[in-house]
Amino acid sequence: MGINRRDFLKLAGLLGLGGKAAFELVLPGEVEAAVAKTQAAGTRWALVVDMRKLTDKVAARCIEACHTLHNVPNYLEPPDPKLALSEDLKNRWQIKWIWTDVYEHAFVGFEQDHQWEKLQGMNFLLLCNHCDNPPCVRVCPTQATYRRPDGIVMMDMHRCIGCRFCMAGCPYAARSFNWRDPRPYIPKINPDYPTREIGVVEKCLLCEERLAQGQQPACVEASGGALIFGNLNEENSPVRAALRAHYTIRRKPYLGTNPQVYYIV
């Protein structure tokens, strides 16, 4: 069994060498080769949000597509008016796989007293960032949340014990908990996709069920080009092209989670 680059770097880090420099020291010239190799081998899904094309209407379409497909309950406007909730409960129970919020909330700490006027009230499309270094995976005590080799931060709803450690760990508020049985609040149940039970956490899974069938995520399909999806490890993928051609920003990159949702502003 050979040692791969990741393990080697870990080992190097343990030995107090750390990082690229150490790597070059021990195995000169190997870095680029190793990187190229992993890149050729695997898939690393990523998403680019083109804010120039993302109007509120498009965003609403994306949210609608996702939430209908995945049986996400609507606590804001329940299908049956008798189930209407108080403002407080709406706020507390809300389940969001993909949602919008303003620049000041999406990019906390980036706001300026005087800034580009188009940012005023610009609604950013937010979802799980499928981090390379996800804190939610780190804290989960049962591996109910785990990272797939293709980068998707996946959830096993059969295993989740509902401790909500991942919600405390996520710095993007991308996770929601089922505080009650969601079924009565699902406008129209899609029988092909499961609903959730009381007491488990849920979030965006990057439509892994659609990817398995060779389809794009539902939000990307509904976005009419505002969302760009693809394999980061593939030189000519649309995401790589978008990232090459534009200046992009990410949410809270300084936390070291390495989020994989990029925004062209």
Binding site: I189, P194, T195, E197
Partner: peptide, 10 residues
């Protein structure tokens, strides 16, 4: 069996 809490029997 608790399958039906999430999966739909159609």
């Amino acid at each position: 069996p608790n399958c039906w809490g999430c999966h739909l029997p159609k």
